[in-house]
């Protein structure tokens, strides 16, 4: 019961919702970049939100299934194929022993997620399956991105393929519509940071009114932005303190970076803003050269957005579980 990496991608890894509780030891949380897509993938196969998933970046790894599985793909659309049959995102699908999953064309998004029903059988490091590539710990292979011949075990298998008479049966009948979970037009909402008021008035305007372009050097640790230079009204030297996912730091050269899932635990650059938790997922699906716009809201509004999103996800989970349980009963799959 496993999948085997038959071709390695560039930066594919096992992630969950992050390794928290150890930042005082310098251990950064890591975890999925797009937490909405990861949750949706888990919802579709009936897993808990916190179950580990496979995060894929184009060009992605290809996988061979050694056993039946019930799977789902969410997030970026990379034109997934099982053998030669196209797999639609946001729908559960069945695989059987010998099937090969590959991703052939980037259509949209910056990372996609593969969830397997009942999760992956991987030893946790400090209560999490997230791969910490910087420290070289966690995941399926000591903090490394997937390599050819890596074998990732499932927790369980079942005779899913008895519901797979022909390729037409491969995709289950229901789908999750994810659009309203993401913010539109790359409008990224933020709250002001502690050094926001150290920006000069011209820079404040630029920060809020102009767009920024995601630089090609962006990665899981941080998104670098290209835009008009921002300046503080006076020199501001900071002592290092904790930073968080979404922290927008102003670099000495006037450009900004947004800290993402692999961010370090501490930092010493001025924090001019913080992307709200609800919009990290939207930003995580933006690719280099895409334009984004920051929009300042209150912390109360930021919380409300997250609660709303969480409410939608909970409803989607309940609706999906009804469908999934009926399907499992219909085909008498344990």
């Amino acid at each position: 019961m496993s999948i085997v990496v038959v071709k390695a991608g560039i930066a594919d890894s096992i992630q969950d919702l992050g390794r928290y509780g150890y930042q005082h030891q310098g251990i950064n949380p890591t975890g999925v970049m797009d937490d909405i897509a990861a949750r949706l993938a888990n919802i579709l196969v009936g897993n808990n939100f916190s179950e580990a998933v496979i995060e894929l970046h184009f060009p992605c790894s290809s996988f061979l299934f050694t056993q039946d599985a019930l799977c789902a793909i969410t997030g970026a659309n990379y034109t997934a194929l099982i053998n030669e049959q196209e797999i639609e995102n946001n729908k559960p699908f069945i695989t059987r022993k010998g099937d090969v999953l590959k991703f052939v064309k980037l259509i949209s998004g910056a990372r996609c997620y593969l969830a397997i029903r009942n999760g992956l059988a991987i030893a946790k490091w400090l209560n999490s399956n997230s791969t910490n590539t910087m420290a070289g710990f966690g995941g399926n292979n000591q903090g490394k991105f997937f390599q050819k011949n890596d074998e990732i075990q499932f927790n369980t298998t079942a005779a899913y393929s008895k519901a797979l008479k022909t390729d037409n049966d491969r995709m289950l009948s229901w789908k999750i519509y994810e659009k309203k979970l993401y913010t539109t037009n790359n409008n990224i909402r933020i709250i002001a940071g502690n050094e926001y008021n150290a920006l000069n008035s011209e820079s404040k305007k630029i920060f809020e009114k102009t767009s920024f372009i995601i630089a090609t050097q962006s990665n899981r640790m941080a998104y670098r932005m290209n835009g008009t230079e921002l300046h503080l009204h006076k020199n501001h030297s900071l002592i290092s303190s904790a930073v968080t996912k979404g922290t927008i730091q102003l670099l000495p050269n006037g450009q900004i970076i947004v800290l993402m899932a692999d961010h370090q635990t501490t930092g010493g650059y001025p924090r001019i803003g913080h992307v709200i938790s609800a919009d990290i997922a939207t930003l995580a699906q933006c690719k280099p050269n895409e334009k984004i716009q920051f929009n300042i809201i209150t912390q109360e509004a930021a919380e409300r957005e997250l609660l709303y999103q969480n409410q939608l996800l909970t409803e989607m989970k309940e609706a999906n579980n009804l469908q999934l349980n009926n399907w499992l009963i219909t085909f008498n799959i344990q």
Binding site: Y20, G21, Y22, Q23, H24, P29, I239, S240, S241, A242, T244, T265, T266, S277, E303, L306, L307, N310
Partner: peptide, 21 residues
């Protein structure tokens, strides 16, 4: 409270908004 992070002259608390609510 997910993390408590001491630094040179500060202490930061990282929390789970949904769990607190």
């Amino acid at each position: 409270i997910k993390d408590i992070i001491p630094a040179y002259s500060s202490l930061t608390l990282v929390y789970d908004i949904i769990a607190v609510r």
